[in-house]
């Protein structure tokens, strides 16, 4: 197997420019989608745990819908199907937007991830011991106060690992956007490979982006957990064999 490594090439134009664009696109696509997904996810998550059967049904339907269809298929639906089904005025505005694929990806990834976040929120609230709710109410707090001062802080801490994991998942899922034309880092790597035949260098850049971000986010999460830790609450026991 003969392969001539040429790492220096990555630092020359046009490759270096592409790489920077690709990394930036990956980051802002992930971050914008994350913000929307989190807001939506919290809303739907709350629906799932309220006492109203109607809201719970809406929440469940939402989650099941977006969870059981592959993200790639969802992207295609947002790209090809939804614009056609909308009123003409809206779809013609949409089609004349710059970066339609980008915003399609944002919408697609946001809705998909929001359903997963809603599930995490539901798990976290269900994991809170029943006694906490009872203790809070018995001291005269209103339901709203109970949620604000007791339940939400508790659930937030339980959720930290799962939410971090969802962010990393969104970050990895931005790669799917390449199928609808968004040039994020994986697409960039493919492009570099196609132009230079130096696949190892190209894909290493992409992999490094993901791995470095993963490590960074996990370190941040560990810091967050330690900083906001409630002693004895989340048992980080090391039960190994």
């Amino acid at each position: 197997m003969r392969y001539e490594f040429s790492w220096g090439m990555l630092f020359t134009q046009p490759y270096s420019g592409w790489i920077i664009d690709g990394i930036l696109t990956t980051f802002h696509l992930a971050l914008i989608s994350w913000v929307i997904a989190f807001a939506l996810g919290v809303l739907i998550g709350v629906f799932r745990v309220t006492r109203s059967p109607v809201l719970r049904f809406v929440g469940t339907a939402y989650v099941e819908l977006f969870r059981n269809i592959p993200l790639l298929v969802q992207l295609f639906i947002w790209l090809y199907v939804v614009p056609q089904l909308l009123p003409i005025a809206f779809s013609s505005w949409w089609n004349r937007l710059e970066y339609v694929p980008y915003w399609t990806a944002v919408i697609g990834i946001s809705f998909y991830t929001s359903s997963r976040i809603a599930e995490q929120i539901r798990s976290a609230v269900m994991a809170i011991p029943d006694g906490q709710f009872k203790a809070a109410i018995s001291t005269g707090l209103t339901p709203f106060q109970m949620y604000r001062y007791v339940i939400v802080p508790y659930a937030a801490r339980i959720m930290i690992p799962a939410i971090t994991s969802e962010f990393l998942t969104i970050f990895k899922n931005t790669s799917l956007a390449l199928t609808i034309g968004v040039i994020e880092i994986t697409a960039t790597a493919r492009k570099i490979e196609a132009w230079s035949f130096k696949g190892i260098e190209a894909y290493t850049v992409a992999s490094l982006t993901y791995v470095a971000t993963t490590i960074g986010v996990i370190l941040f999460m560990n810091w967050m957990e330690r900083r906001y830790q409630i002693p004895g609450l989340i048992k980080r026991g090391k039960e190994g064999l």
């Binding site: 197997m1 392969y3 990393l168 990895k172 899922n173 931005t174 790669s175 799917l176 390449l178 994986t186 790597a189 493919r190 490979e193 696949g199 190892i200 894909y203 992409a206 992999s207 993901y210 791995v211 993963t214 490590i215």
Partner: peptide, 25 residues
């Protein structure tokens, strides 16, 4: 485990799609 869970599936697919013919010849 950490390496393969940090990378997206598509990228791993590109890696193998590129590397395997090279390794096998």
């Amino acid at each position: 485990v950490h390496v393969f869970r940090s990378n997206p599936l598509i990228l791993i697919l590109f890696w193998f799609y590129f590397l395997m013919p090279m390794i096998i010849g």
